[in-house]
Design a protein around this nucleic acid. Structure first.
Lengths: 209, 209
DNA sequence: CCCAAATGTGAATGATCCTTCATATAATCG
DNA sequence: CGATTATATGAAGGATCATTCACATTTGGG
């Protein structure tokens, strides 16, 4: 992957009047809808503008290029997700490890369930636009929260916390994503969720004192 | 994701003379190299042809369009992967569950390790070109092999095999993929691998009789 | 009510790139 | 060796799109 000529990703201008705030929101919403209906390949500046009911030029008032639009969308989503995870971690502080792990699974599972297609579309968009930096920043932020949660768990064994964190987060994120990428029926999905919890519990019991 | 006008994905013509077999191989190899060096965005028909040392027209003798080229590449890779997994499953037939699971982990881990960048690039290309059909066919094929392996394990508990298979494969595939997507040092990676094995073992022990 | 700043418009530009086809060269075989 | 088939060439066609910019409209404060 050769380094692309670095493009501006920051918004070009921040809305000042309320009129423009509406516009920017419409653009975001349109981006999501086009992404869902036509996929990343059909996400053209024209299609987004049309759907948003604005002209192409307007888009360029707020986003220097198409890439930055998708970047901003991912940023929004990942920030919301990070906040949710942080909330869970705060709530589960000083709780038993098994409960903490289950809560983490519940949180990710809920986010996925709420917007399966969108999360998948965003995953693809990140891959397509080389927004790895965004993903890594997000991963680091979330890792901080989960590590803290596990470190302060009620029953942390001698086992070190960051190692446990790495295992649990890798397994949980990976499994949740993979679970939804196969086209499973709701039954299988929910069975999988409780089995995943059981698996984490079993492991925690085995490394526990 | 709206259904794209379905494009021909099958090769246009199968090489008859040895000269053309060389050409097709060169095209595949060039595709991999361009994919690795310039990413999916830089994968143009011209760049592939140039790298392969042939003209664009030649490519179109064997592939009806760009999409089919990437499709064929993924097909090749996934078939090889499936064969390897099937090999593992055959070898591990009638072995204890824990051994079977570990062997599966080893197999995926080995494939990933051998060609990290390529597997990641191919993942992206599949997502970008909506080749989900390919992925699902592959998943089904592999599932057949692993389910059989688990079903005939030496120590299968009352627990039904397909449920166990779903959990283990989801966790293993997901975790392996996720493990390599973060930029971990070799130490962390190898630690993660043995922890993942331990986790599977713990779960199997807990559901075991 | 007026004007400077903010916001919106969309045709035109220019670049990229897939794909085709008329033509050329090489292999095969009777 | 001549004819048929296989393979290779690459310039030109044509379509798609991101991006710009000169100009129009709206807003809010003075």
């Amino acid at each position: 992957m050769a380094p692309q000529p670095p493009k501006a990703l920051k918004p070009r201008k921040t809305p000042a009047q309320s009129r423009s705030r509406v516009t920017v929101d419409a653009i975001f919403e349109a981006t999501i809808q086009v992404l869902l209906s036509r996929g990343m390949a059909g996400l053209t500046t024209t299609s987004v503008a049309e759907r948003a009911g604005v002209s192409v030029g307007t888009m360029y008032q707020y986003f220097p290029n198409k890439q930055s639009l998708v970047h901003a969308l991912n940023d929004r989503f990942l920030t919301a997700l990070a906040e949710r995870v942080e909330g869970t971690c705060a709530r589960m502080r000083a709780q038993p490890l098994a409960e903490a792990a289950e809560a983490l699974i519940d949180t990710y599972w809920a986010v996925k369930t709420e917007r399966v297609e969108l999360t998948q579309a965003l995953y693809r968009s990140v891959a397509e636009l080389d927004n790895d930096a965004l993903m890594h920043a997000f991963a680091a932020r979330v890792d901080r929260a989960t590590t803290a949660m596990f470190r302060e768990a009620a029953d942390l064994p001698a086992h070190d916390a960051s190692r446990l964190n790495l295992l649990l987060t890798t397994v949980i994120y990976g499994a949740v994503r993979n679970a939804f990428e196969r086209g499973l029926d709701p039954e299988e999905i929910s069975g999988l969720k409780s089995d995943l919890k059981a698996m984490c519990r079993a492991h925690l019991a085995s490394v526990g004192r």
